[in-house]
Write a protein that binds this DNA or RNA. Structure first.
Length: 289
DNA sequence: CGCCATGTTAGAGG
DNA sequence: TCCTCTAACATGGC
């Protein structure tokens, strides 16, 4: 269920254990989530060295010395877990012990030396992609919110060039890539903006506040190693600092008003009705509700 | 049983 | 063409 900060935390954690290592094998217990088929992925990655481990939006990117790239998207319930490959001498010393796969194991990479990296995923929404053309594979992704290209001017243009509700717009990965349900709600609260406000009807100061809020909350979350609600992603501390997400009925940390939960674009959405007033329409008839 | 879930996409309809 | 909403994917927790 990771968003940008959780994926960034995962990437930083696995980088030192993967970069420079050679992949010995790959397998999948859920072939439907592999593109191309697992056998083709295995043929391409076996024997290759991992040159770099990076993140693009919510994708984990393993770049191989062959020029190909393995992209892993954890979607809602994916996580990575370390284990030992079968036949690992240091593990199987003595008795013929075999390590049981972790719960919800779906795919694995074996490294030379005997380590195994598992992809576990209760809901099977996660995806593994192999590509030799990384720009093409990520062409549909929008700007990285923590990158240098995410300037205030660029953001203002992204908002003003369309007329959309702010929350669905922030979740649209083809516009800004990396925000998810938690940090979209958190950024809007920090900026004092209603999730249903129109992207093209913000004052310049509001655009600037939202731009800063997005970057601030993502950086803060990375510093806290992300947000942890359950066993799927246990290593974060950001949940202690969330202002609206998951806090329906509890007092706003700024004004004390109970946080409200509504539904916007199929997603649970949390807001403070006082700090995030629904704006009056600047065009068209006044709304009735 | 019913509702919820840190994500994404295809398709329908306005 | 753009925008919004629904269903779908598949499973587990409360």
């Amino acid at each position: 269920m990771p968003e940008l900060p959780e994926v960034e935390t995962i990437v930083r954690a696995i980088r030192a254990r993967l970069e420079g290592r050679r992949i010995a094998g790959f397998g999948s217990l859920w072939p439907a989530n592999c593109t191309p088929a697992p056998e083709r992925i295995r043929a391409s990655v076996a024997g290759r060295r991992i040159a770099a481990v990076t993140r693009r939006a919510k994708f984990i990117v393993l770049s191989l010395d062959s020029g190909e790239h393995v992209l892993v998207h954890l979607r809602m319930s994916g996580r990575l877990e370390w284990g030992a490959a079968n036949g690992n001498p240091s593990f199987a010393r003595g008795a013929e012990r075999r390590e049981a796969p972790p719960r919800h194991a779906r795919a694995w990479w074996d490294l030379e030396g005997g380590e195994r990296l598992w992809l576990c995923d209760a809901r099977k929404f996660g995806r593994i992609l192999l590509t030799d053309d990384l720009p093409a594979a990520t062409a549909r992704l929008g700007v990285e919110p923590l990158g240098d290209e995410f300037t205030l001017e660029r953001f203002a243009a992204l908002l003003g060039s369309r007329s959309r509700q702010l929350k669905p717009l922030l979740l649209d990965q083809s516009v800004i890539a990396g925000l998810g349900n938690i940090y979209a709600d958190e950024a809007l609260h920090r900026a004092g903006l209603h999730p249903l406000a129109r992207s093209d009807q913000l004052a310049p100061a509001q655009v600037a506040r939202l731009h800063a809020a997005i970057r601030d909350v993502l950086r803060r979350a990375i510093r806290a190693n992300g947000t942890s609600f359950d066993w799927i992603y246990p290593e974060g501390r950001m949940q202690a600092y969330l202002r609206v997400y998951g806090r329906a009925g509890r007092p706003c940390r700024r004004c004390g008003t109970p946080i409200r939960r509504i539904r916007v674009g199929q997603r649970g959405t949390h807001l403070c009705p006082v700090c995030q007033r629904r704006p009056r329409m600047r065009t068209g008839r006044p709304r009735s509700a």
